[in-house]
Design a protein around this nucleic acid. Structure first.
Length: 289
DNA sequence: GCCAACGTTGGC
DNA sequence: GCCAACGTTGGC
């Protein structure tokens, strides 16, 4: 398993070395290829478990750590958007929440984010992908539950919104996420995935040929981060946005997907997660979809 | 294709 | 720091 880029020292370490700092168990081929990972040298699983500090410092827009070692971040680095991004185009809200007041300070100081997760606690997320073909810089950025089922694991690159990135940085190994189909004929939840690496720099951001290239960022000081995800299962039945909205003023009143529709990576509370899992089991009439 | 809701940019 | 113009997301 990858434990993230906490100790990453961008200027002094080779890519291979950086990669070796991870604990690897289930990592997408793309990540393996990028960091020169070789099966034969798989590091022994580090059980030491990461010790998490109670509080972390993150700059206001959640960037935390981008230019400095992640050490101060509770978790991992930040994610990004788009390759899979294909997945949803980025989100924008990040800054929204961090908002201006915070932003101002951020430049000069860091805001403290409390990592109040209990030991062993799992958190839940929703990540948007675009299942229908869309060409960006000559490449099709579509990504659906079918693709993930075939690949088994995938990077989740391409997120170019700070708030979404921050959410990815808060992810921990073993967290679960809904794969949501967006910007398509029938938007809704298509499957469940497991987070299999914590955040690390999104290497597509400095790849000129990549659809999600961001000319303003550099490998020496990554701004965007991503995670790797693992296919868990398809939903037993597709749970559409329309159906979720039926509970928008009740059980799912606080669901970020409904309240912040432009955020591509958003949190789901345990109650919301369990409610949606129950919804999945419900038998629906064809016309009811 | 339309358009609402935001986010970003840049002039002042 | 304000705010108009513009760009993007994403449902419909």
């Amino acid at each position: 398993m990858l434990y993230g880029f906490r100790d990453w020292q961008p200027k002094h370490q080779t890519r291979e070395r950086k990669f070796a700092q991870y604990q690897i168990e289930m990592v997408s081929k793309r990540t393996q290829a990028h960091y020169g990972y070789d099966e034969g040298q798989k590091p022994a699983p580090r059980r030491s478990e990461r010790t998490r500090k109670p509080a972390v410092k993150v700059d206001q827009d959640g960037d935390s750590i981008a230019s400095s070692p992640l050490s101060s971040v509770p978790s991992s680095p930040e994610p990004e958007k788009k390759t899979p991004a294909k997945r949803a185009r980025a989100n924008k809200d990040e800054n929204a929440t961090e908002s201006k007041p915070a932003a101002k300070k951020a430049k000069t100081a860091t805001a403290t984010v409390i990592d109040d997760r209990q030991p062993g606690e799992i958190r839940y997320w929703l990540m948007k992908a675009e299942p229908e073909p869309r060409i960006e810089k000559g490449q099709d950025v579509k990504f659906s539950i079918d693709d993930l089922e075939r690949l088994r694991t995938s990077t989740w690159e391409g997120v170019r919104n700070h708030e979404a990135k921050k959410n990815m940085q808060r992810m921990r190994l073993g967290d679960l996420a809904f794969l949501y189909h967006s910007n398509c004929k029938e938007p809704g939840i298509a499957g469940v995935m497991k987070i299999c690496t914590e955040g690390y720099p999104d290497f597509t951001a400095w790849d000129k040929s990549h659809p999600y290239f961001d000319a303003k960022t550099k490998e020496e000081s990554p701004v965007w981060h991503m995670v790797d995800v693992e296919f868990e299962r398809r939903m037993e039945r597709f749970v559409s946005l329309k159906e979720l909205r039926e509970y928008g003023d009740k059980e799912l009143k606080g669901l970020a997907l409904l309240r912040r529709s432009q955020l591509s990576v958003s949190p789901v509370s345990r109650e919301e997660w369990e409610f949606i899992m129950e919804l999945e089991k419900k038998v629906v009439d064809a016309e009811d979809s």
